[in-house]
Each structure stands twice: as C-alpha cells, then as structure tokens.
C-alpha cells in the first residue's frame, strides 16, 4: 500500500498502566509495527532505532509521568504516514522543558540524562508539548520505502 507523502496510512494506539513491567510490551509492539514498513525489513537499524527510542521515551514517562488521577496510564501512538513514522508518548505528569535539558556532559560522568540525547540522535525530529490532555513527546523518523499491511 503506497500513499501520498504526508498521508496518514494507519494509526495504532496503546494505553497501558504506568508500570515498568509494561515497558517491554511497548517495545515489542514497536518492533512489530516496524516490520510493516518495507524499508525496515531491509534496514534493520530503522526498527532498532525506533525500539530504542520507544524504550527511552516510555521509561521517562513511567518514571516521571505520574498523574494525580485514578487512572495512571501512558498512551503510545504510532502514526504511519506514507513517508514517516510518528510516535507519540503521552503521560499526565508535571512535564519538562525539552529545550532546557542539555546533552549529558561526558566529562562529568553523569549516570542519567542519556535517554533524551539518544532520542534526539536517532530521530529526525523530536517535539514536546504540554496540553490539557497531558504531555506529548513526539518522535518522527522518515523512511523511503512503502508501508505494507
């Protein structure tokens, strides 16, 4: 199935409890979704980059996305466009300022702060917005091949 550039082909939504036990559930789904993208069957690094970034983003949401609501959950959206995969991670925590988080200073040997650096390095674009519905970390990775179901 080939589509026009910018056309949303498919959207997969997952909601799971904000618990680390569900982390591998999220990364496993991301691997399966990447298998639907032709390029990623040829270029294994596409799926592994997405898996890594989903792991990083969901770990951050699990650690810091605590909501004051009864339903403490994280939502994960995979939007497959004709030419890119858009992944959104939604949590209901207090959020952060993406631009104020510096890359880790390796000289001082920090034991944290690598997650967002990895996401920024592996993805083509990263955005973060805070809305009334929660915080959305959006990660975008382009591909050239076709999306096939």
């Amino acid at each position: 199935m080939a589509g026009e550039s910018g056309e949303l082909m498919e959207e997969i939504r997952l909601t799971f409890p904000r618990k680390v036990a569900y982390l591998r559930f999220a990364t496993s789904i991301s691997k399966q979704i990447c298998q639907q993208i032709e390029e990623c069957r040829e270029d294994k690094s596409f799926a592994s980059d997405v898996e890594l970034c989903v792991s990083e983003a969901c770990t951050n949401a699990i650690k810091y996305g605590r909501s004051g609501e009864m339903e403490d959950v994280i939502s994960l959206y995979f939007q497959i466009f004709a030419d890119k995969l858009v992944i959104k991670v939604q949590d209901k925590g207090s959020g952060f300022n993406l631009n104020k988080l510096p890359d880790p200073d390796i000289e001082s040997l920090p034991d944290r702060g690598y997650g967002l650096y990895i996401i920024r390095s592996k993805m083509d674009d990263v955005q973060y917005v805070q809305t009334e519905e929660g915080n959305f970390l959006t990660m975008i990775k382009s591909f050239k091949g076709n999306f096939n179901v």
């Binding site: 898996e51 990083e56 770990t59 920090p110 034991d111 690598y114 997650g115």
Partner: peptide, 16 residues
C-alpha cells in the same frame, strides 16, 4: 542484545 540509558546509567554509576 539490547541496552538503553537505564542500563548505561547503572554501569556509569558503578564506574564512578
């Protein structure tokens, strides 16, 4: 096969 920043952080902490 797979390590992310949580695993890296554990090893950096030990190194420190």
């Amino acid at each position: 096969d797979f390590i992310d920043s949580s695993g890296l952080g554990a090893m950096v902490l030990i190194l420190r």
